[in-house]
Computed example of a mutant assay.
Amino acid sequence: MAGKKLGIGIDLGTTNLLVYVQGHGIIFNEPSVVAFDVETGDVIAGGEDAFSMLGKTHKKIRVSRPLRDGVISDMDAAKAMLRYVFKRVQTIRNFKDSKCLICCPSEVTQIEREAMRDLAIQMGIKDVFIEEEIKAGAIGAGIDIYTPTAAMVIDIGGGTTDVGVLSLGDVVLSHSIRIAGNYIDQEIVKYVHKQHNLVIGHSSAEKAKKKIGTLLETDELQTYRVSGRDLVTGLPSSVELNSDEIRNILLPIFDEIRNVAYTVLEQTPPELAADIVDNGIVVDGGGALIPGIKEYFEEQINLPVRIAENSLTAVVEGTKVLLKNRGSYLVNPTD
């Protein structure tokens, strides 16, 4: 339709990049990784294909994660990643007349926000605005944030965890910490190094987290074998991890997240706190998929907890509403 801008919503995540385009749905949902030919600078792979190359390349290929801890650490790689995404979608050709929403963690600095905005502008999109991930995630998780009733959200992503309270279409208060999925992977790598004298990669740690990671205490242990380089012999080796070991790594990490939730609740105005007592807390993001999250937060915070059904895509799905409702705090638009 003439005069109507195409809406593009981007969840520029540390772990995964998700892109929503009005009229096309979610067109991309793959790891935020891009691979370059070192000699020519050309992109040779992105997303899943590039992710499979991590830790396995030779000197002629460079694999990069454009984001670290929720912010752009490699601008060239971030631009290349988005170009790669849009090039893959043959049905969408012209973005210059589009409006683009990029979601970021709540405590990203103004300089970091400008870097994200510049990323889209340099690709030819003139109308670019930034919203907080926690706001988009709340909408995507099915919360109507445009009412006077408060909602509390814990968004556990790859690079950051955001905890916030929303009401009347915006964030009332929020806190963000750079302790999330990637941090858990790093702690697993450190644990295996220290306890088993084995050096493993972050991909192996992530697989162990997904396979046997849990906050539930159970008599039936699950196991997962990880492989790497033995520190004593220098040779390839492997060790079997169990779910109790991973749980002991996870608990202090989630205690940190719980402490942030405490801080937010302590700062929440009384009327909004009353709503949270009635409505509880919604958890989204990749970290929400770890078994036992609901039980852990309910026990620790003593409030009802709901895990978003679409935890991994809640943020980008929330951009559908924010793209239509830009600048309004009182009306929740419908299709």
Rank of each mutant, 00 (worst) to 15 (best):
M1L: 13
G7R: 13
G7E: 10
D11Q: 05
L12W: 08
G13R: 12
T14N: 01
N16Q: 04
N16E: 04
Q22K: 15
G23L: 11
G23C: 10
G25S: 04
S32F: 01
S32T: 09
D37G: 02
V38C: 04
I44W: 06
G47D: 00
E48S: 13
S52P: 02
M53P: 13
G55V: 11
T57I: 13
H58Q: 13
H58S: 11
K60E: 09
V63F: 08
V71H: 03
V71A: 13
I72C: 08
I72Q: 08
S73F: 13
S73W: 07
D74V: 03
M75V: 13
A77P: 11
R83V: 02
N94E: 11
F95S: 05
D97N: 14
D97G: 13
K99Y: 07
C100V: 15
C100R: 05
L101P: 00
P105S: 00
P105C: 02
S106F: 13
T109Y: 09
R117W: 01
R117E: 09
I121R: 14
M123C: 03
G124M: 11
I125K: 10
D127R: 13
E131L: 06
E131P: 01
E133G: 00
E133K: 12
I139R: 05
I143A: 10
D144F: 02
I145S: 05
I154E: 03
G158Q: 10
T160D: 02
V163N: 07
L166E: 02
L168M: 14
L168D: 14
L173E: 09
S174T: 08
I177E: 12
R178V: 11
K190F: 01
Y191G: 06
V192S: 05
V192F: 05
H193A: 08
N197G: 06
V199W: 09
I200N: 08
E206A: 09
K207W: 01
K210Y: 01
G213Y: 10
T214R: 09
L215N: 10
L216Q: 14
L216P: 02
Q222S: 15
V226T: 02
V226P: 00
S227A: 11
G228W: 05
S237P: 04
S237T: 08
V239H: 10
E240Y: 03
E240A: 07
S243H: 12
S243I: 10
I246C: 00
N248H: 12
I249D: 04
D255T: 15
I257E: 01
I257M: 12
N259W: 09
Y262C: 00
T263Q: 13
E271H: 14
E271Y: 15
V277W: 03
D278E: 15
D278L: 15
G280Y: 05
V283A: 05
D284N: 14
G287D: 03
P291E: 07
G292F: 05
G292D: 04
K294T: 09
K294S: 06
Y296K: 09
F297I: 14
I301W: 01
I301E: 06
L303Y: 10
L303H: 09
V305Y: 04
I307N: 01
A308F: 07
G318Y: 07
K320W: 05
L323E: 01
R326M: 03
R326A: 01
R326T: 04
S328N: 15
N332Y: 11
